[in-house]
Write a protein that binds this DNA or RNA. Structure first.
Length: 894
RNA sequence: GCGCGCUUAGCUCAGUGGUAGAGCACAUCCUUCACACGGAUGGGGUCGCAGGUUCGAACCCUGCAGCGCGCACCA
């Protein structure tokens, strides 16, 4: 028997087993296996990333699914990797460069800068991988991928080339979301609308041919006034429509601009007149196009003013310029009013500054396979859990806009397009570039650079998600089209991810899967909860409300963290995280460990289970409960209700196994117990515990592996993680009737013990073990269970005596197995007992009344299902019996 | 404006038609030889509000309120 410390210490154990699993190759997927395939691809964390609780939840679920699939005898591939995360990574390296050397990326030049980013990736990129290992993730690390691996990059380029040739990718001058900090275009998804307290300024422009007459205009952005090229009014505007076609004076720089009519203008809003700045507003841009208006860009890419004609504004920050413009308008007497105004302003997701609508030359993708992809989710070929996300998905798919895929960054996959040097200027300013331009030989689009001629490559890189959307198959197919991995494991089974990237990633992967592999990439998508703090706020670094999972693992163990988090994560709702749940996870591991420690007092050699027929009812009951647990879990796994699984596992061990069975069985492990009783107890323990450890393993892999070894449940060199879960119930040989009979008896004993303890507590002898109980009218079978009952109730002796005449005032209780008395010197108190019993009778009478009322209601008896009525009758009968017994007791006191 | 979700014990949450639950917190007792990261006992809820359906509603329907999220608009 190995000495076990009193409390479970996970740190060393977890490290040891993770190393052992890796050493033994337990995580490796065999692409030539005959077994049924099960695959998950990890949502690749950013290389710059550090593990947070969202990762913990997400990867715990994936690990549970992977480990569960292995237990079902499947060949499992959990494919890990990281994402190059263009903007985030580049920004991080640029910041370090600025802080340590005071340089910008342009100081270094593209090649040198990229070298720095690679250095960063090579030194920091595996931090999060190490952290995932610490958590116990059973990924096949031999297949770890990075979105900028050479083979992966080739895939990305190939996809670009194919889609370009198909006419789905084109370059064009468009209004895009521009981040003035990151200095790049962003996709619509990377813009976050934030409600903001703004000011709505109302100003007036004077009509050129009727001095003294003004048109009033409201705006939130007076600083773009220099870019105004028109004033638009609704054609039905009561006051202004008659002025359509007239010119007004733009105050600075002074110019005459026309009043135009357009029904895009909202009559109700502001004054009903709208200043048109095509360069800096999406709606204005479209109106400008329609009316053939000039585009005047008054901002630099970094968001500072670009107004050489107005030196007082030139180079000014856009928000400073706003105040300056207002001041100037006021000075000129053109400002009419300022009001507080709530509107939504688009912010750059990464840089967290207001984005600037800006016209620029960008590459766009017309999404492929929209119809099929929409249909796949609608008809259930792909299941979303919770299902309501399917609606969100459908809505987005219906309103798809072309995807801006080019980014003005250096870190990423460079656009595989080359321009003929002699036509460079024309090409760079061309309104659009498409397939025909490649056919004409002006541009070259290919995976490999052109071999002859003088070309210059497009400087832009692609949106990170343009590589991520290929993740499910690009990670599997890097040994060519005939990759066995791809054949064996694609499409994958489950995708586990956050609902916040349903558009960024999930929807796009579905389209890519159909387009490039002609198959959906996964069958189920499980959207995890978003983790918030106790105040309901999102976890974030800036709020400092995000606990470090590594600290939590140091404190409570990886298993404790996993279990604690899983147990509180609801399906489809946010989870409010509190450290106490992780503490509970740790406590649970400790409880499990100590249950096994108790067993080891009787040695740690596996004890075979004797024939189940004729075993004590407690043993049969606990095995029946385990069988039911296993069967139930099967169904709950099918519904992906992970929190409920954890809860069921928790309740079985703590309540059924430890609190009840383990206490009852102590009677059979005493020195005085027979060898037969001991063997039955130990055999039951091992049968139940070995199976239970398997059931728990996906949630708490380390402690279950440790205990399986220590308890002799696996043979040398074998791992519980690789062991197939048997599907035969422990009690396969017993009939349901036999099981039910045992269950009833065991339950009666446990309930009776509870009543006796309750009685002791009420008389303040809860902790005394020297008490004696006497039963009157006890069931015949009780005599065989007296020892166990005494043990559970904490009594020195329990007697049955139908002729017993209790002294008046003796504490007494009605139990499922008869009337119980607690005769003890000093406890006898007639008045107290009268009050206590009367209270109980009162409670009981209410119940009886309720039941009688129900059964007296003809509609209930006629219309409710017969079993419900039967149940109600049974209940009433029980209560009446009890009431009668209590009545007798009360009478005896009088 | 459209859509989705939530509202159950002090806190965090289970519970989808048939006697209101768990964990934590709280109170009392117990350091009894698996576990104080523990055991025992107990207090605590008109299940957001108002209607409706039903023999019966926390659960189904309608409306309302509060909170949260997404989308669109936002001069």
């Amino acid at each position: 028997m190995s000495e076990l410390a009193k409390a479970y210490e996970p740190q060393e154990v977890e490290k040891k087993w993770y190393a052992a699993w890796q050493e033994a190759g337990c995580f490796r997927a065999d692409e030539s296996s005959e077994k049924e395939a099960y695959a998950i691809v990890i949502p690749p964390p950013n290389v710059t990333g550090i593990l947070h609780l969202g990762h913990v939840l997400n990867n715990s679920i994936q690990d549970i699914l992977a480990r569960r699939a292995r237990q079902q005898g499947k060949e499992v591939l959990w494919l890990p990797g990281t994402d190059h995360a263009g903007i985030a990574t580049q920004a991080k390296v640029e910041r370090e460069l600025r802080e340590s050397e005071g340089k910008t990326r342009r100081d270094l030049g593209r090649d040198e800068f990229l070298k720095r980013v690679w250095d960063f990736k090579n030194t920091h990129g595996d931090i999060i991988i190490k952290q995932l290992k610490r958590l116990g993730c059973s990924c096949d690390w031999s297949r770890e991928r990075f979105t900028m691996d050479p083979e992966y990059t080739k895939w990305v380029s190939q996809v670009f080339v194919d889609l370009f040739n198909e006419g789905l990718i084109y370059r064009g001058k468009r209004m895009v979301n521009w981040c003035p900090v990151s200095l790049t275009a962003l996709s619509d998804e990377e813009v976050i609308m934030k409600p903001s307290k703004s000011k709505l300024f109302t100003m007036k422009y004077e009509l050129s041919d009727s001095p003294g007459e003004f048109i009033e205009i409201s705006t939130t952005r007076p600083e773009t006034l220099m870019g105004d090229v028109a004033v638009a009014v609704h054609p039905k505007h009561p006051k202004y429509s008659k002025w359509i076609g007239k010119m007004v004076k733009r105050p600075f720089p002074e110019a005459l601009i026309p009043i135009i009519g357009d029904d895009a203008v909202d009559l109700e809003f502001g004054t009903g007149a709208l200043k048109i700045t095509p360069a800096h507003d999406k709606v204005d841009f479209e109106i400008g196009l329609k009316h053939g208006l000039e585009i005047i860009d008054v901002l630099h890419p970094d968001g500072n003013m670009n107004t050489p004609d107005l030196p007082e504004f030139d180079g000014m920050d856009r928000f400073v310029a706003r105040r300056a413009a207002v001041a100037k308008l006021e000075e000129m007497g053109l400002l009419i009013g300022v009001e507080e105004y709530e509107n939504s302003v688009g912010y750059s997701e990464r840089a967290d500054v207001p984005i600037e609508p800006r016209i620029s030359m960008q590459w766009f993708l017309r999404y492929p396979e929209i119809g099929k992809s929409t249909e796949a989710v609608a008809n259930g070929d792909i299941t979303f859990r919770p299902a309501r996300w399917a609606k969100t998905y459908a809505h987005w798919m219906e309103n798809l806009q072309d995807w801006c895929i080019s980014r003005q960054l250096w870190w990423g996959h460079q656009i595989p397009v080359w321009y003929r040097k002699d036509k460079l200027n024309d090409l760079k300013n061309a309104e659009s570039l498409e397939t025909k331009d490649a056919e004409a030989g002006d541009i070259y689009v290919g995976v490999e650079p052109p071999t002859e001629g003088d070309w210059e490559r497009d400087e832009d890189v692609m949106d990170t998600w343009f590589s991520s959307w290929l993740w499910p198959f690009a990670t599997m197919s890097d040994v060519g089209e005939n990759s066995q991995t791809l054949k064996k494991f694609y499409p994958t089974a489950d995708l586990v991810t956050g609902p916040d990237i349903i558009f960024f990633w999930v929807a796009r992967m579905i389209m890519a899967g159909y387009r490039f592999e002609d198959q959906l990439p996964f069958k189920n998508v499980y959207f995890t909860s978003i983790i918030r703090d106790l105040k309901g706020r999102k976890m974030s670094k800036s709020l400092g409300n995000s606990p470090d999972p590594i600290d939590l693992m140091d404190k409570f163990g990886a298993d404790g963290l996993r279990f604690g988090l899983m147990r509180i994560a609801p399906v489809g709702a946010d989870v409010r995280f509190d450290e106490s749940s992780v503490e509970e996870g740790r406590n649970f591991a400790n409880k499990l460990y100590n249950a096994c420690r108790f067993r080891q007092m009787d040695g740690n050699e596996f004890a075979p289970l004797p024939a189940v027929k004729g075993l004590p009812v407690y043993h049969i009951q606990v095995m029946a409960k385990l069988d039911k647990l296993q069967a139930d879990l099967e169904g709950i796994y099918g519904e992906y209700r992970f929190g409920e699984i954890a809860q069921r596992l928790y309740e079985f061990l703590w309540n059924d196994f430890c609190d009840k069975w383990l206490e009852a069985v102590k009677a059979d492990l005493r020195e005085s117990a027979t060898a037969e009783a001991r063997a039955a107890a130990l055999g039951t323990f091992d049968a139940v515990m070995s199976r239970y450890l398997q059931l728990l393993h996906p949630y708490m892999p380390h402690v279950t592996e440790e205990l399986s070894e220590r308890m002799d449940y696996v043979s040398k060199g074998e791992f519980v993680m690789s062991k197939v879960l048997p599907d035969t119930p422990l009690l396969a040989e017993l009939s349901p009737g036999e099981i039910e009979a045992a269950d009833k008896q065991a339950t009666a004993i446990y309930e009776t013990a509870g009543r006796l303890r309750n009685l002791k507590a009420e008389y303040n002898v809860g902790s005394r073990k020297d008490v004696r109980f006497i039963f009157k009218g006890a069931a015949a079978w009780l005599s065989g269970e007296i020892n166990v009952l005494a043990l559970l109730a904490g009594a020195a002796e329990i007697l049955t005596d139908d002729a017993y005449e209790a002294p008046k005032g003796t504490p007494a209780a009605v139990t499922p197995v008869g009337e119980a008395y607690l005769p003890m010197e000093g406890l006898i108190d007639v008045e107290a007992e009268k009050i206590r019993i009367s209270k109980e009778i009162e409670k009981m009478q209410i119940e009886v009344k309720k039941a009688e009322g129900k059964l007296g209601n003809a509609s209930f008896v006629d219309r409710a299902p017969p079993e419900v009525v039967e149940q109600e009758k049974q209940r009433l009968e029980d209560w009446k019996t009890k009431l009668a017994q209590l009545g007798e007791m009360l009478d005896a006191l009088k």
